[in-house]
Design a protein around this nucleic acid. Structure first.
Lengths: 215, 215
DNA sequence: ATTACTATATAGCGAGTAT
DNA sequence: TATACTCGCTATATAGTAA
């Protein structure tokens, strides 16, 4: 058995961020990993084979970056660890209402029937976009309810997850769901749905503070 | 070379929180780790030898919990990962002012001289206690400045770390430091010092929102 | 029932080296 | 210069089993 996670974490640290890469020779990677040049070479190959990194040759070694799949591995790891570390403090996220580009309403209407079947309520055709201050959390967790993809009128709609959320906005508490597209979108914000029109019924406006916990 | 981190993370997930334990037989640990009963037994011994877990025999196996040292390993891991995942979003913490029990002032006065030597300013004898909404972050990082322990008038004072912070409160920005006791305190809140009296000069009051980033 | 030892098979490491 | 192959040695895994 071979664990590649520790190497992925080391690489993540060097790479620095999702859209960055890190360039080094296999010997240097060996130093970073704490193994020989040969083993580093082998691990880089294995990590690529796993689909967790991409490696492109350059004059002085490889340019390495982390794939979406690698990022989900890191997110899963982070969630495991932080669920332990934040056990008592019950993880409250803080963010603010931001403007979406209006496409939420379109998609919600397409998924409405499926959502009703799954969650037992008909969602208001529109989403509340929330920017979380500590960075978009990975909400694809145990309690996430999956809706599989489907085709309608010749157009295919991908699977989504729905994570139950308890949201506080303007001193009101609302039970709602975060939409987690299965095809990893690189959206900065979280999209929330509920049976209510957040903006009308709860006077949610851009910049309003929201707090939520995940169920 | 053997990596114990992945096993520690698996255990952390099962254990659930710092002050909890998890009970299982070595076969069951084997299932969790994805290895045989024999290997699970061996890894539990190694983890204990590392000082990352404690294991106490019970009728049906072992009660396992994670030591302070194990927790720091997890924190280090979390920080590596989240520095990658939150690369662009530049990690802003949000919290609120809470009341301390007043002991801050006493300790700051004891450490004042050392702090002046190290940071070049004489701290106001009192701390601003901040509860971070996303849970107390681990601020024992690269930029943390260490003050070693000392003895004064027959009483010994443990080492502390000082992490530079840029804090915003009531629309004012203050450069200050978070105090990180070396002996892991299990305090929920963060204690901040600066040369200013936060409560007087910046009208900080309990419940006021603060935001800060770490330098 | 357990845990954990011993023995043996296999996986992994890295020196040497071809490319 | 590099990377990454082969191969001998060591480390690790687990079957068998004692305690």
């Amino acid at each position: 058995m071979v664990f590649l996670e520790p190497f992925l974490v080391s690489l993540a640290e060097e790479v620095g961020g999702c859209d960055c890469f890190f360039e080094a020779t296999t010997s240097e990677f060996g130093q970073i990993f704490g193994v020989s040049q040969q083993s580093a070479s082998r691990y880089l190959m294995l990590l690529e084979k796993q689909g967790w990194i991409t490696r492109a040759r350059s004059e002085k070694g490889f340019k390495v970056s982390i794939t979406d799949e690698g990022v989900s591995v890191l997110k899963r790891l982070e969630r495991k660890i932080s669920s332990f570390l934040n056990h008592d403090s019950e993880m409250t996220y803080v963010g603010e209402v931001v403007s979406g580009i209006g496409e939420g309403a379109y998609y919600v209407s397409k998924y409405a029937e499926k959502i009703n079947e799954t969650l037992g309520y008909s969602p208001y055709p529109g989403t509340l976009n929330v920017r979380v201050h500590s960075g978009k959390p990975d909400l694809d967790i145990k309690s996430t309810i999956k809706i599989s993809g489907f085709t309608s009128e010749g157009r295919s709609y991908g699977g989504v997850g729905l994570t139950p959320i308890v949201l506080t906005i303007n001193r009101k508490t609302i039970h709602c769901h975060a939409i987690i597209p299965e095809r990893t979108h690189h959206k900065l914000d979280l999209e929330l749905i509920s049976k209510h029109n957040f903006r009308k019924e709860f006077k949610a406006a851009d910049g309003d503070e929201v707090r939520f916990t995940v169920l």
